[in-house]
Design a protein around this nucleic acid. Sequence first.
DNA 1: CTTGCGTTCGACCGACCGGTCGGACGAAGG
DNA 2: CCTTCGTCCGACCGGTCGGTCGAACGCAAG
Lengths: 203, 203
Amino acid sequence: MAGGGAGSAAGSRADEQRQRILAGAVTVFSRRGYRAASMNEVAEQVGLRKPTLYHYVRTKQDLLVAVYEEVLDESLARGRAIVARASSTREAVRELIVDRAAYTCEHRDLLTICFEEESELPPDLRQPILERRRVYERLVREAVEDHLRESGLTLPIAVNVYVNTLLGAANWTYKWFDPAGPRTPRELGEDVATVLLAVLDAG
Amino acid sequence: MAGGGAGSAAGSRADEQRQRILAGAVTVFSRRGYRAASMNEVAEQVGLRKPTLYHYVRTKQDLLVAVYEEVLDESLARGRAIVARASSTREAVRELIVDRAAYTCEHRDLLTICFEEESELPPDLRQPILERRRVYERLVREAVEDHLRESGLTLPIAVNVYVNTLLGAANWTYKWFDPAGPRTPRELGEDVATVLLAVLDAG
DNA sequence: CTTGCGTTCGACCGACCGGTCGGACGAAGG
DNA sequence: CCTTCGTCCGACCGGTCGGTCGAACGCAAG
């Protein structure tokens, strides 16, 4: 009863190792691609041998799924928190954009995997995972719709197209954000939001 | 001297086959991922057997490189043509966005490969290819800078950030454009451009 | 010391992949 | 008729990968 359990992390030695292995897998998968990365490489990254990995992990696919779980959980939690705490509907939309870009930049390796390895998901888990992403997108769309309703403004295009454009601009930062550059992830997110909010404010 | 030659396509029977094989490879690579796709699958897609593929193609990597060549050539050609023919600097920027999104939507499989298989490029060709992409990005940036200079407007953010945001929004359409949906690629591109130009016009 | 358990790994297995080889088929040219 | 050449493929090879097995090690409890 004390330590372990079902969740994704706990205090036990074994769970610590699992976390280390997952972190190593993220590094290797994002650098070389899920399929090209071998479990031997993951093991080396963590400082273990392959059979030891399999003492803690069931399959390579499980590691990939864990990445999606983490990103989806975190994305949705952040999104909900932002909507809940926002001081206005406009601020909610703005902060969703800023935070989305910032989160993406702070975890480029994680997001690289999520964006590029969808076809590697096991077929039975693919639908549920995509559905959870759709929940996040709906949250953003509703934030935009709330703001439009409240402000009386109208968008010159379909809301759904606006949301996809917005998410594209924010997500694409995973391709070009430079951690050694002059802008912090949040600053960059604010700039991206400035671009995307202009069309909203123009009403 | 008559038929064949160095270019990427010609009238000879063999070149026709090469085109068919490349098209099949694009389909399979984009659906399953370059690494996960086997040359057997490509062969099946084209209606041949693996050894026959290798009668026309040197290596699997060559097929991948051919995809990048095609997309880079086409992108740059379109970009230059747009800038050359644009009736105003604003129209140049607008049309660059519209066409970028439209081209992406019309060739989703091609672009999917380009966006997601960069790490699979042979190391010696990677730098040259990335450099050519940078040339395209520079073309867009200069179009934006020309418009700002001519109009006397200023952007509230760095031009470079604006261009990356713009390209992200346009490129991301490869993830969500629905060919069965109500909008044509160009219509969708126009909507995306509407969002991105608002901040420019507000200048 | 003995038992037991969590951890580690060398060696191995079956499957598959990129790529090759040698030959078969068929049409064109003599 | 035979030759030639482009096309096609069954069978095969070396290598790698995901995953397993059985044993060894270290350590805490009795």
